[in-house]
Amino acid sequence: MTAVVDDVGSSGAGYLTDERLAIQAMAREFAAKEVLPVANELDPVKGEIPMELRQKMAELGFFGVLIPEQYGGLGLGVFEYALIVEELARAWMSVSSLIARGQQFTAGFTEEQRREYLPRMAAGDFLSAFALSEPDAGSDVAALSTRARREADGWRISGQKMWCTFADGADYLQVFARTSPIDRDHRSRGISCFIMPKPRGELPSGVTGTPVRKIGYHGWKTWELSFDNAYAAGDSMVGPEGEGFKVAMGDLETARIHTAARAIGVARGALEDSVAYARQRVQFGRPIGDNQAIRFKIAHMATEVEAARSLMYRVCTEVDAGRRNTVEASMVKYLATEMAERVTSEALQIHGGAGYTTDFAVERYWRDAKLTKIFEGTSEIQLKIISDSILGRQAR
């Protein structure tokens, strides 16, 4: 498999301070030495991210990048978070996704919950699995039907959940369920969010599941879950009752920037591997990188990666400055993920028949790039958000 080569482009002029460059270099070295070899070994056989690797990530503070220092985190911004995510995704997208399990979707935590949970999250000891989507409620989150019934000292949750990645390996499930019936005029009301702690490596009592047979995003399992009167403690609710939709939507700017960074990392991996392969692969007595068709492909790929990264840097800067950038976050998520699918497809083409084997990492980047267009809101959802901001919302 191809080794890491120097990043193509990525000057980052005006954005990359000495501190950020040091963070980027640290993450890049870790990804090359610790993550990429593991990915190349385990992804082809659908092996799981080793616990030892998770511990090394915790020791570097990766699970607490966004968590304030007073709670044991690094207290850094979305910009630094995106830098680290891109580097990890260049090696294995699943690992770059794992770090979100300690610091995203905490909107709505009370101060008491922050004191209790955030230090453990920053240490990598309290990682989450997000149980939101359902068989009939994917992009339409407000359509979810899982119910939470109040009892004397807590809640009983019943219903179905889909696409719950890391449900077994996590330390808790973050579960969204209806605590009141659907209001047809205000469909998002009545959804509440619950924290459901559990033993690592198991599903909670009252929850059964079946792993989804997915084509990529290996390194961990993604689950279809059934809740049958599963218990949630009385103090487990995140945010006010009935306002779980706001909790789910509260971190979407960060989540979409996170996905953009993942897409850029995946695309960069495919690009760098293609550059190395074009120099090594000889046909008709010459490296295929001497052929203009290949050279122009690589030039176009590099330009697309750099364009997406530049937009991501700008959006991160705005978010870290405290300026709301919901639409721009959708833009960078859309641009970067669409780019990643194109770039990884071209990379596979450059590798020819070799690219269609599991002997080269490029097929992993190709499979994972497709997923970036689907989760955290599909490309079509991003286009709706963007167009609504320009033209106004369509009448019902």
Rank of each mutant, 00 (worst) to 15 (best):
T208D: 12
I67F: 05
A3E: 13
E151Q: 12
V282S: 04
D235I: 06
V45E: 06
Q55I: 14
A299F: 12
I386S: 05
I386C: 00
I84Q: 04
E19I: 09
E272C: 03
A230S: 10
I195M: 15
A131C: 09
Y117W: 07
E48M: 14
L383T: 03
F284I: 09
L335G: 12
A152K: 15
A142V: 11
P44T: 04
D140E: 14
T110C: 07
A32S: 10
A32Q: 08
R54P: 05
A170H: 02
A31K: 08
D388E: 08
T337Y: 02
A369K: 01
H218K: 10
D140I: 12
G352H: 06
I99H: 00
T254C: 11
D7P: 01
E41Y: 08
M312R: 08
S274F: 00
A255N: 07
F166V: 07
D368P: 02
F176A: 05
D273A: 13
Y277F: 07
I385Q: 13
A91N: 00
D153H: 13
F109P: 04
S139W: 15
R150T: 08
H218S: 10
A307D: 13
M196C: 07
F296V: 13
L252H: 08
G73P: 02
K221P: 06
G285R: 02
L391R: 15
I23S: 09
G64R: 02
A278C: 02
S188R: 15
G154R: 03
D6F: 04
A148G: 07
L83M: 09
I257A: 10
A123N: 03
R279P: 00
